[in-house]
């Protein structure tokens, strides 16, 4: 008998395979979310998943829960509305960096200020993948994208500073650091108040390819080389991943 991956029961498995490109990190993060939910024994009847627009916006539809797929950038106010109307629900948001920091940046600022008890998992792939690979708010300086052919001239958004300015839970991880990312999401879900987990993820089709990566494995490996775990700090350096409570 083949063993059963019980955490996959949080997904509508009949919808698999996902429509994401081969090698996309979104699937790994979907799995991390499921594992964290299983660890905490979240029930279908008291969990709601909200997402915005973009590749990552499609995540919500895969969960075997009541889920909401909102308009671009507005996942946070919708999640806040849900949580405040029914405080018993566990409200999770999975969305991308363009959605949460770009078009929805104002809502992030105010949702963290209001400190509503929701958990946000940000799939931060530093690119607008669905629209073809334009520069996003988290694109690194000098990085080449469709709209920055000579390299990005603007520095990426400092999400850590935004979220921790209001003393909220902030964690950063990558898809390579699987266990660490799982720990981040697990702790974020238990945190009472606004918790934000930024998971760096690879987009090979519209980002890595232009930056000289051959496949998504190479991108995963680049996370291994570029990020060091540091869980005991109040401020993460740009090359560190960790949890700030």
């Amino acid at each position: 008998m083949t063993k059963e991956l019980t955490y996959l029961n949080y997904l509508k498995q009949e919808l698999l395979p996902t429509q994401w490109c081969p090698g996309c990190g979104n699937g790994i993060i979907l799995k991390i979310a499921c594992m964290a939910m299983e660890k905490l024994d979240f029930q279908q009847k008291d969990t709601v998943m909200v997402s915005g627009i973009g590749c990552s916006g499609r995540s919500a539809g895969f969960f075997d829960l009541d889920s909401v797929h909102t308009v671009h950038g507005r996942a946070l106010p919708v999640a806040e509305g849900i949580k405040l109307a029914n405080e018993k629900l566990n409200v999770m948001v999975i969305s991308g960096d363009g959605d949460l920091f770009g078009i929805g940046g104002n809502h992030l600022l105010h949702a963290s200020r209001r400190n509503t008890d929701i958990t946000v998992i940000c799939i931060s792939n530093a690119i607008y993948g669905m629209t073809g690979g334009q520069c996003s708010p988290t694109t690194e300086l000098t990085s080449k994208t469709l709209t920055t052919p000579r390299g990005n001239v603007d520095s990426p958004i400092n999400v850590q500073a935004l979220v921790t300015a209001h003393n909220c839970f902030y964690a950063r991880s990558t898809t390579f650091h699987f266990n660490h990312a799982l720990k981040c999401v697990f702790e974020a879900l238990q945190y009472k108040g606004f918790s934000f987990v930024e998971i760096k993820s690879q987009c090979i089709t519209n980002d890595g390819r232009r930056r000289g990566f051959k496949n998504s494995y190479e991108m995963l490996m680049s996370y291994r080389e570029n990020y060091k775990i540091n869980n005991d700090t109040n401020k993460l350096e740009h090359n560190e991943i960790g949890i700030i409570r």
Binding site: L16, P17, C21, P22, G23, N215, Y217
Partner: peptide, 13 residues
């Protein structure tokens, strides 16, 4: 095989 998109992560990992 219905789910596998042959991305090759497993091959390298």
């Amino acid at each position: 095989h219905n789910r596998c998109k042959v991305c090759g992560i497993c091959v390298s990992v």
